[in-house]
Structure formats: structure tokens, C-alpha cells
Write a protein that binds this DNA or RNA. Structure first.
Lengths: 268, 268
DNA sequence: GTGTGCATGTACGTTGCCGCACATAAGAAA
DNA sequence: TTTCTTATGTGCGGCAACGTACATGCACAC
């Protein structure tokens, strides 16, 4: 496992043009993200925005009776703390580290100031926020219509997309909390998916054996969210470069106001 | 039924400071919103942003198999078409008029330009978008954990809050489509709520008799969303005035007090 | 080794909603 | 009036997930 860290492991940060990156990166602080760590609590002013690199954060809502449900999932493709620049400062949800790793963070005030400069960073963050909107919307739809089995696959894929490698360290109990279902339900779904040969599950370690199979088993929600993220934030990793100074080959072309491709809609 | 219309019937528009309003209002176009009218389709470029005054619009996702689920509901407190200024131009959802009435609309390009001016309008729209995020998140939670009966009450209250008066014109079939459940399920829930004396339901006309009772019967989701909207967009109707021309006493104080520095431009 | 804790698997009755098939009832149209 | 359409009410079998209780099994500490 590499010990080297680079802000560009986060897709949003990697998407900044060189000039902007030089402006932003010095303010980044690398922080460890231990499992279960709460980045912010419902209704509490948040101090930092987090850009995960090797960690995953869940945004979840905890009800009065203690039951919970995941609202969105944030990994190396995004950031935690959009309400900082959206103007609300807080949200009614909680952000919890769901998979340990690292993240870069920025002071809240700095994010606000940077956002107000109305540069590439602003466009980027807004686009990301819209992608987040889509993810939340699809979560609502999925919760309404799809079986636990499908949701389990969707969740697995979403998590996998936000981490390097194809192993997840995750107990069934945790997954159940995220999905807002019983632990036994996850046991059953996981067992069934394992029996189908798509994953191997061993005491908190999930290995994905057949990604295509998972995608086929998941509901359409996964594809919709992924497609929308790709459309809004077309990440293109810099070939052959990681931490050097040569520039911004990794970029979101769209940030520079290129017109977006229109997806054709379903017919009315 | 009044024939007089005023942009300030929409809370967002009413919240604009006078100078801004003078700039924006001339570009508004009053349009009728017939029941079932589709404002935009999934994945299709939207041409206008809509600010409902006496109508309600549902954002809903329609699945491949035709099943649907409401993602959010927009009435006189908000606008339809946030993706215009968020940068995506389209969303994977559909916007349908759920309760007939009127709305003001702005050309899409005009909204973008106005947003980029980084004035009060921008702050307002961002705050509204965050409120929308909360609504979607809570919809997801509600879909996961709460009974149809609770969701029915929540939905009724959300709709009621977004319309003048306390009557809803809405068939059970339509409600079922919004909630993503069977029509019979709505029949049962509505019957039960009516038996409790909270509403009177008569062939598509719902009259709310006991609002407090409804709130008690609804799940916490309604309160959470309402609270968050009030916090982010504290609407204060002008005392003693409604649709006349005398001015802008209705305002969102928060818009004026935004402490954020508004520099623009700087380096590419 | 042996114990202890945590992760996972299994079973069973219950519930909330679904899918389907009708039965009414209230307007609108003839 | 009668007929037709739309809106609502009802009944029943089925199923996915729930709540509960308990059993197994791995891993690490001692």
C-alpha cells in the first residue's frame, strides 16, 4: 500500500486547472479518516470541507428513534460539506466515515471565499452539487421501488467506484445501517450474491469477483447515477503522471464552460 | 378565484430586494400551468425556469418499467429548473404540474446570466437549492422507513404549504403516482385519515379540517423539511397586503445580510 | 491451547404493501 | 331518463422485509 498522497487523487481537485490548483493546494490539509469518525453532526456548523482520496464518507440521516438511512455517498469523486458554499452552513444530516482512509480538507471560510471568487472552483462545486442532487433523488426512488438485493448491489458498486482497488472492508452490520435495513437482510442479500459468484465475503472483507454481474443484478439506479456523474464531472486521469508539477492534464474539460452533451430523454 | 397576478406571490421573487426586483421582474412571463403539463423531460435541455405562484409542480423520476416516484415538490416557495444555474442544464427527472394554476417564468439563458452576476439572486437560488437537497434527502428517508399513512400526511402538508387556501384538487390516482404506491393504498390511507376527521375527501377535492392533527399523524420528515425551508428561506409575507403593487415588504432578510465578499473574475 | 467477542447464518411468525379483480358511486354526456 | 366515464371503495392471496431469538464460526488475546 502506497504511503504517498496527492490531492489529485481526489477527482474534484484533480479537475482544477493548473493556475487554480496552485492557488488552492497550499491550503489543503491531509487528514486521516478513521472508520466511524463523524465529520459533522446534524444541525451543527461545519468547520471544514473534506475531499476524500482513499476514504468513503456517508451522508446519513438519523431519525428520532435511532433508525438511519444513507442519503448519499462521497468518495474520491467529490467533497463533503456542500452546504458551506450553498449558504446554509449546516444540514439536517450527519457525515460519517464509512471506509477508513485519508482526505484533504479546507477550512470552511476558505471554501466560501474561494467559491465567491466565481472561478473554476465554483463551477466545479456547483456541478458536483448537482450530481449529488441526482444521487439523492435516485436513492429516494430506489428506496421506494427496489428490492434489498438490488439495493445491495447498487450500494456495492457505488462504493467500489469511489475507492481504489476492488475490495471493500465493511461489515454487514454497517451496510445495514447505511441502507436502513436489518442486518439479517444484508446477510441474506450478501449470501445470495455470493452464491451467484459475484462477490466473496469473508468477515468484513468483500471482494468483487464479477463486476459486470453486479451491474446486471443492480437496479437501474446505479447506472443513472453513474452516468450523471460522468456527464457532469467527466474525470480523466492524467496518463503517466501523479504528483509532478507539469500541469493540469487531468481536467474536467467542462469546467471551462464547454457545452455539455445532452442525453436524450425518454420519450414522453 | 382572483385574476390578479403578482410575481411576489412567489416567495423567492418576493425575497428580492427592490433594486434587484426592478431588474428581474420585467423579464418575467406569466404562464398558465395546466394539470399534467410537463415542464421538462428527463435529459432534455430546459428552456425556462419556472416560479410557481398558484400552482404546484412535482419533480419525479420515471423508471424504465413506467413506475414513478416523486423526488421533490415545488410550489410558491421555490422554482423549477435549478440545474440551469447549477451547470448541468438537464436532470434525469421530469417536472409535471401537479396542481393547476399559474407561474412566472424566465428564459434559461437569462437565469444563467443573472446567476453569474453573483448578486442577491444567486444567494437566494443557492439557498433554495440547499433546501431542495434537504427535501430530497428526507424523501429518501421517508420512503425507507415510514408507512404509507404517514407519507400521505406528509405529502398533504407539503402540498398545502405550497398553495393558498386549504383545499387540494387531486385524485387519489395522482397522489399514488407521486408517492410511487398503488392507488388502492392511497384510498385506504385517505379513508383512514378522513375517518379520523382530519380531512374531507370528495372526488378529487381534499379539504383539510384539522391541520394540527395531520401534522401529528405525519412522520418527522415533514417537520424537518419545513424547518429547514424556514431556516434557509425565512419568508415573511407583507402584513395587510397581498397581490397589489405597493412594494416589497415581503423579504428574505438573509439575502441582504450575506456577509460573503463578492469579488468576480480574477485569473482564469 | 482456551476463552471471549464479534461477524455471520438460520428460523418463524407478523406486517405493510402489492397485484389483481371487482363493486359502487358521482358527475358528464347521450 | 339512460349510458358512459371517472373516482373511489373492498376483498384476497402473495411476498418482501421486519422483529425476535438463537446458533455457528472466525479471530485475537491470554
Amino acid at each position: 500500500m502506497l504511503d504517498s498522497h496527492d490531492p489529485r487523487q481526489n477527482h474534484l481537485l484533480a479537475a482544477l486547472p493548473e493556475a487554480e490548483a496552485e492557488h488552492v493546494f497550499p491550503h489543503l490539509e491531509l487528514v486521516p479518516m478513521p472508520l466511524g469518525h463523524v465529520l459533522y453532526e446534524s444541525g451543527v456548523q461545519m468547520r471544514h470541507a473534506y475531499f476524500p482520496t482513499t476514504s468513503i464518507v456517508s451522508l446519513l440521516y438519523v431519525m428520532e428513534d435511532g433508525a438511519s438511512a444513507e442519503i448519499a455517498i462521497v468518495g474520491n469523486e467529490g467533497m463533503v460539506g456542500v452546504s458551506l458554499f450553498m449558504g446554509g452552513d449546516t444540514t439536517p444530516s450527519r457525515a460519517v466515515v464509512q471506509s477508513a482512509g485519508h482526505a484533504y480538507r479546507l477550512r470552511g471560510q476558505w471554501v466560501k471565499d474561494e467559491f465567491c471568487r466565481a472561478g473554476p472552483m465554483q463551477h466545479l462545486l456547483l456541478r458536483y452539487t448537482q450530481a449529488l442532487l441526482t444521487q439523492m433523488a435516485q436513492t429516494a426512488v430506489c428506496n421506494r421501488h427496489h428490492t434489498l438485493d438490488q439495493q445491495f448491489c447498487r450500494w456495492l458498486l457505488l462504493s467500489l467506484d469511489r475507492l481504489p482497488g476492488n475490495e471493500l472492508v465493511m461489515t454487514q452490520e454497517l451496510i445495514a445501517n447505511m441502507l436502513g435495513v436489518r442486518r439479517e437482510g444484508v446477510t441474506e442479500a450478501a449470501g445470495s450474491v455470493q452464491k451467484a459468484g459475484l462477490i466473496s465475503y469473508h468477515r468484513g472483507h468483500i471482494n468483487v469477483l464479477d463486476r459486470a454481474g453486479l451491474e446486471a443484478r443492480a437496479c437501474e439506479c446505479y447506472a443513472v447515477v453513474k452516468k450523471e456523474f460522468d456527464r457532469l464531472l467527466p474525470y480523466r486521469p492524467a496518463p503517466g503522471r501523479t504528483t509532478d508539477e507539469t500541469g493540469a492534464a487531468a481536467s474536467l474539460s467542462a469546467v471551462h464552460s464547454a457545452p455539455l452533451p445532452l442525453r436524450k430523454g425518454e420519450k414522453a
